[in-house]
């Protein structure tokens, strides 16, 4: 397997102008944010959000970013105009029997461990985002396919993870381990469309995203993932 893809860290290099760009529709356009604060953030960090989108699209192709899933959203459970840089992804996977045999909290803990820290690191590659007082925090929403269907229709399980900026900064700055970080974040669970409310999860170090390579996957010309 000669086409090794290392995804621990990512740099997308442009070779000339030929580049298979991911859909811009993954990003919530600045003018569709409902407050001036959010619109300002979306304009200020437009390049960083585009790079986040591009990196996931090309280097983590098993993650699906739905339309309007990257932006400075307001978590519904928070008051005022708290603006969190938010990212929603679906994980396309064939789950192992061990994974599907777990309770929801177990599956959610595994997904949290695997993706939340990595997504946060990608969302803050532009360090000024983490330092910006207008950025109140970060949201990572992760969905995955449930083993059972509902009326023959597939069902997603979802967790929405909210970290205020100080909590995120402690984790990203190495002052909090992932297990401590998980205890300080708010996590809401969903079974299909049904809200499960706040869930308490355990989290552990998981380097899957750093090490996993899709067999024979060849990034688009001009894209380098490392």
């Amino acid at each position: 397997m000669s086409n090794r893809l290392v995804v621990a860290a990512l740099a997308v290099a442009l070779a000339g102008s030929a580049f298979a760009a991911p859909p811009e529709s993954h990003l919530l356009p600045p003018d569709q944010h409902s407050s001036e604060k959010a619109r300002g953030l979306a304009r200020r960090y437009a390049d960083a959000l585009r790079e986040l989108n591009t990196g996931i699209y090309h280097c983590l192709p098993w993650l699906v970013v739905p339309n309007n899933s990257i932006g400075f959203f307001k978590p519904k459970h928070l008051a005022n105009d708290a603006r969190y840089l938010s990212l929603r992804v679906y994980v396309e996977q064939d789950a192992s029997p061990q994974f599907t045999a777990l309770e929801f909290e177990g599956r959610a803990s595994a997904m949290y461990s695997r993706y939340v820290g990595e997504m946060l690191r990608r969302m803050t590659r532009d360090a000024s985002i983490l330092a910006d007082a207008d950025v109140d925090g970060f949201t990572v929403i992760i969905g995955w396919l449930k083993r059972t269907t509902q009326g023959g229709q597939p069902v997603h399980e979802t967790i929405a993870v909210f970290a205020d900026r100080a909590t995120a900064a402690d984790f990203l700055g190495g002052r909090a381990k992932i297990a401590d970080f998980a205890g300080r974040t708010v996590v809401l669970g969903y079974d299909g469309q049904q809200a499960l409310g706040p869930v308490r999860l355990k989290a552990w170090e998981d380097n899957f995203v750093s090490n996993f390579q899709v067999a024979n996957y060849q990034p688009a010309p001009g894209v380098t993932c490392h």
């Binding site: 959203f73 307001k74 978590p75 949201t139 229709q153 597939p154 469309q193």
Partner: peptide, 29 residues
């Protein structure tokens, strides 16, 4: 396997449209 191949396979929607929480239930624009 190119990125376009991945996208093409995905668009064939192997498992059908999934029941999932609407983003509006979690976040406001």
């Amino acid at each position: 396997v190119s990125r376009d191949d991945v996208e093409q396979a995905r668009q064939q929607n192997w498992f059908g449209k999934a029941i999932t929480v609407r983003q509006e239930e979690i976040l406001e624009q």
